[in-house]
Simulated assay, not measured.
Amino acid sequence: MTNPLTVRFWLAWLLVGLSNLVLAQPPRGPLVVSPQVNADKSVTFRYLAPQANEVKLSAQFEKAPVAMTKDAQGIWSVTVGPVKPDIYPYSFQADGVTVMDPANVAFFPNERFKASLVDVPGDTPLIHALRDVPHGSINYEYYPSIEGTTGSLVVYTPPGYDQSPSKKYPVYYLISGTTDTEETFFKVGKTNLILDNLIAEGKAKPMIIVMPYGNMAARVAEQKGGAKPADPTVRDGADAVKRANDFTTDLVSNVIPYVEKNYRAIPGRENRAIGGFSRGGGQTLRTAFSNMDKFAWVCAYSSYLSPDEMNRSYPSIVSNPQQTNKQLKLLWVSVGSDDFLYKGTVEFMDYLKAKNVQFKSLVTDGGHTWMNVKTYVAATTPLLFQQ
């Protein structure tokens, strides 16, 4: 028979333990809802910082940081807009320190700056919106890469991929820009949703999209215990070209064989496309022009190669334009009119025209932004693999 004193002792011990556990929990502040997209397309941002002296909102749809106001609970807030429907990065500046929005789980994958994301929906669903259509899948992959390192990929497979085990698909290799990661085309560019919607509308062919990490030097340094090297200061300097060539080697020698072994990819150049944004666009052009036997579809988003580099490194592209035009099913170049790479990109397009190399182009409003990138992806993917 259990001693009642023993039972009371253990109950008391348990209550003391639970009370200590409760006391050990950090205090919880008030519930913060941020961002809040309102019916009129204005957006309310909130940030809990009772000890801060000044907090500002920094958002890509604002020309300058916007001052926020603190309430009695220590929550800073501001309502801005109406905001044009799209997905935008934003952050807070608390006493001069840039911070993400802790109330928001959506963030911008990047090596350097830390930003959250706000999605302002359109009255009519935008091309990147989550719609009631069949959806593809996103997979994370790891593969043996250069210098004994392990590389990482994000891979989109189209709707029906798992249900049709005998069907094979063409592949679009899609590369992010400087400081971006392999997740950026997925989490910011919403490439998977864009393709889901275009495929459902019959505008794009079902395809596999492979999104690699473009910074080989940073990954090698990280995995071998070294310091991450600074980004090249000259876009077509020796360091930038070497890093681009390392990426080319990795993509051609490691990524493509891994994808074609592990996914139902149709081999051959006419079933491979390559594209990229900013640095990824430069990597795209260098990889494609040095491997014309590997890719027939090439898309450069907000990127270019200088005439000097073209003449020096890829003379065959322009010395025999008839052959180039025959080999390339698509050469695409696009840029925003306010993009800091606008001048160089237009010079590249003028160079191609003068050399009689055929290409399609799109010049949009706006700058070097992922809002424009989504536009370019939506414009180019319906053109890919159309025989």
Results as ranks from 00 to 15, higher is better:
Ala221Val: 06
Lys343Arg: 12
Ala94Trp: 00
Asn53Cys: 03
Phe113Asn: 11
Pro144Leu: 07
Tyr169Ser: 05
Lys70Cys: 09
Arg235Tyr: 11
Asp339Glu: 11
Leu14Trp: 10
Leu130Trp: 11
Gly226Glu: 06
Ala129Tyr: 07
Ala64Arg: 12
Ala94His: 00
Phe348Glu: 06
Asn139Lys: 15
Asp132Lys: 11
Pro89Val: 11
Ile127Lys: 05
Arg28Asn: 07
Tyr142Phe: 11
Ala238Asp: 13
Pro35Leu: 13
Val259Ser: 04
Val220Cys: 06
Val16Tyr: 04
Gly189Glu: 03
Val43Gly: 02
Asp250Pro: 05
Cys299Asn: 09
Cys299Pro: 02
Leu251Glu: 11
Met68Pro: 06
Val363Leu: 07
Leu11Ala: 13
Ala300Gln: 02
Val118Ile: 11
Thr375Pro: 03
Pro27Leu: 14
Gly275Asn: 10
Arg8Gln: 12
Asp339Leu: 10
Tyr161Pro: 01
Ile199Met: 12
Tyr169Leu: 04
Pro50Ala: 09
Asn356Tyr: 09
Ser164His: 15
Gln387Asn: 13
Pro82Gln: 10
Pro212Trp: 02
Ala106Cys: 01
Pro50Gln: 08
Ile199Gln: 07
Gln322Asp: 15
Val346Ile: 15
Leu5Phe: 13
Pro170His: 07
Leu195Cys: 04
Val80Asp: 09
Val234Gln: 10
Ala67Arg: 12
Gln283Val: 08
Gly81His: 14
Glu183Asn: 04
Lys329Phe: 02
Arg272His: 14
Pro212Gly: 05
Met349Trp: 01
Gln25Ile: 14
Trp10Glu: 01
Pro382Ser: 01
